[in-house]
Structure formats: C-alpha cells, structure tokens
Design a binder for these strands. Sequence first.
DNA 1: TCGCCGAATATTGTCAACAATATGCAATAT
DNA 2: ATATTGCATATTGTTGACAATATTCGGCGA
Lengths: 236, 236
Amino acid sequence: MRRHYPIEMILRDAFTVLRTRSLPNLVQEQIERMILDGTLSPGEPLREAALANTLGVSRGPVREAFRGLEEKGLIRVEKNCGVQVRTLSHIEADQIYEVRITLEALIGRKVTENMTRQGINELTAILDDMAIAAEDSNVHPYTSLNLAYHDTLARLTGNPQLHETYRRLVSQLSLFRRRAYLHDMQSMALSLREHRAIFQAIADADGARASELLRDHAEDSRRRLHDALLPSDVPD
Amino acid sequence: MRRHYPIEMILRDAFTVLRTRSLPNLVQEQIERMILDGTLSPGEPLREAALANTLGVSRGPVREAFRGLEEKGLIRVEKNCGVQVRTLSHIEADQIYEVRITLEALIGRKVTENMTRQGINELTAILDDMAIAAEDSNVHPYTSLNLAYHDTLARLTGNPQLHETYRRLVSQLSLFRRRAYLHDMQSMALSLREHRAIFQAIADADGARASELLRDHAEDSRRRLHDALLPSDVPD
DNA sequence: TCGCCGAATATTGTCAACAATATGCAATAT
DNA sequence: ATATTGCATATTGTTGACAATATTCGGCGA
C-alpha cells in the first residue's frame, strides 16, 4: 500500500515516533491490539514478567500500560492477584449497547451537519471494500470494515470527545465473545444495504434520517446480541 | 457526618482497603481529587519526584497513576517534557456538552424506569441540603450538591456503563476553569426549582418529561458556558 | 482416604539507582 | 548587542533488585 514518500516526510514521521512514543505507550497499544483482535481472550491472565519478556522491556512499562488499559476498561486488575483480560457479561454488553444506541443517533445527526467532500470519499471507499468482501463472503475483512465504517462516522462528526466516548464503548464491546453474527452472505448483504442507506441519508444531508437509521442499526445489533444469547443459555 | 458503625463493618472496610487499594490506586485518586477540587489548576506542571515526596511514595506508583489519569483525560503527558493538568478549551468543553446533553436525556428516561424507594430518598436528601445551601447562598456546598445530584441520577439508572461514561465527561468538564456561574441567590433558586421539577417528573414516573427537563437543564449549562465566554473574549 | 497445615515457588508491589533527554545559563563569536 | 554553542542542572525514562503476598504441592494426622 505504501508509496514512495519524500525523505522529509519519513524523517518527520520517525521524529514524531521517537518524540511521542514511549515504551509504556507502545506496550499499551500492543496489548490493546492483542486484546481487540482476540490474541488475548477475555478472562486470560496477563503476567507482567512474561509480557515484559515477550515485548523485550522491563516490568515497569508493562505495569504502566496495565493502568491505562484498566482505565480503558479492557483489563481487570486485582491487587496481588494479577490482571486478566476483562470479561463482559451479556448484561454489561447490553448496558453498553444502551449507551451506544443513544450515541449513534447523535453521531448520525452531527456527521450529517459536518460532512465534507473528503469524508464522503472516505466513506465511499470503505463501502466499496465492504461490497467486495460481501461479494466474496469474507467474514473477517467485512467485520473490520464494518468497525472502520462506524468509527469513521464517529470521527467525521468533528467532535473528538464524541468520537472518543464512542470508541471506548465499542472497544469494550469487542470483549464480549462474539458469536459470528454475520456469517452468511445474506446477512452481509443486508448489512451492506443498511450501511449504504445510512450513507445516502448523510449524502442527502438528511440528518434526521441518518440519525434514525444509525439508531435502528445499533438496535438491531443489540437484538442480535439477545437472540444469539437467549437460545443457547449455556455459556461456553 | 460519620456515625458509629459496628466493629465488623469497620474491619471489613479496613480489609477491603488493604485488599483492593494499592499505592498507584491511592495516588491516582489523590491526584484526581486535587485536580477536581482545584488544588491543581489546569496547565500546572506535575513533577514526579515532587509528588512522590509529598505523598511519601516512590516515583513508580506516581508514574502508574499518571497513566491512569492520562487515559481519563485529566492530564497531558508529553514524553521527556513532563505532565500537566489538562487544559480544556471552550471548544472542547462545548463538544463535551454536546455528548453530555444526549446522555442526560437517556439518564432521565432510564432513571425514571429504574427508580426505587431508596433512590427517591437519596434524591430527596440531596434536594433538602441544596435548599439549605441556596437559602444561605453558600455557593460551594451548592455546587457540590449539584454535582452529587446529577451523579446520583446517573447511578440510579442502574446502568454502570452509562454512569461511568457520564462521570468521565463531567470530570473533564471540571477542568474548564469555571467562572462562577451560580453566584447569586436568584440563580441558585432557579437551579433548585429546576432540580425539583426533574425530581417531580421522576417521582411521577414521567420518563419523557424527566428526559426533556434534564436535556434542557444541560443545554442551559452549555448556553451559560457560551454566554460567560463570548463577552469576555480575552482568555486569562 | 480425606482434609488440613506449612514450606517452596511464583507473582506482584515497591523502591532506588542509572541512562537519556530537556532546560536554563553562561561564555564566545559575529 | 545578539545569536549561538556548550556545559551544568533538573527531570523524565528504564531497569533490576528486594519485599510482600498469593498459589501450589507435598506431608502429616485424623
């Protein structure tokens, strides 16, 4: 993907990395990635020394990273007993959805108010990729693009606080062991249609409709959470 | 305020403290308190060594506390340049208000659905204290009670995620140097009436009205933020 | 055989020393 | 006189060692 960049830009990047990225920061991001992509499963214990060895750093930075992740709600720290990847009960997941649904409605309104040409292009690109993934029934890429689409919407509201609040909730939701909701081509096609409808409402500057569609979309997700859970009442 | 408690309860408390509170935790809470009550002002630099000395601990726990506070959005950490209490621009404060207003509406609806006898009592007690503070024109106690009232509403929704999300935003808002909004007896009296109206709607199980009143109440705050800011355009 | 106690081990909590980087100040050169 | 360079100091970044606590496992007694 990366094309040739002028040397100054590369240097500026390297400079920025050295300037802002400290060991605790990198460690935190790395652990967060491993949690969100499932390398580390909810409930799994995290040992300071082991992680420090794996990442080639001392325990200090790892401990600092833990504090950040705890505040982010991604891990659970119990004094003298170690830390685990946080497990999310279906009740907690449902409670998060309740907040998320409200935020989606706000996002729909604000992103429409704030939409730019650049934003339209970004969303179009994501939708195109989603179409390809849906066509090929590639579940994992589709799921990633789905997350990217909604995250992009939150960002394009132009309200970083809203974006951050939204991200926080979504990242915690990923702790809930997700039975593959979108597993067949039909559900992906349906999902794609919904995302296109949302895009259309935004492009038409119809904030009320975008808001409504996004809220409904999130409510569907919440309903799928219930449906996937209630029948199979055996956890694990 | 504290009354006599049975010895078992005290012991259990002490046990709980030792069990769950680690040094980094206590340090973080202490610094957070100092930030929220204004002992540490926005923009003020925080020196690891100095804080460690003051609190009688080593720099390690202080650094860990910093990570947590950074994730909470209360401080700003710049590599090799130290950490400051975060400053909130009026733009950021406004953006936070936008999210908060939406959450207040949700809180109004949920707290009404979820209200209990115990909750009614808690709110009544706070309102009574507010009335006394307003009567005496005691600004500081009134402000605290105001915060407590809204925080209690968020808690009584029975949705900890909603409560936590709300708290996060409110605590960041306290970073915005607050020109004393409620300075005279009239505005306190008005505020008290609004809080009583919200309570009444909840007690009447009128969720829609509680939601509307809370949203309006937050929108008023946001408007006061603008009004207090635009005339005096000179920052500091 | 089952349950309890205690030592050994592993893991986390805390600290102080060392390294790297930034800041402030003084001296020098233009 | 001003700007720049180099040094001294202060502050943060990282590490490894030591202390405290939990967990595990083997032995002992009922």
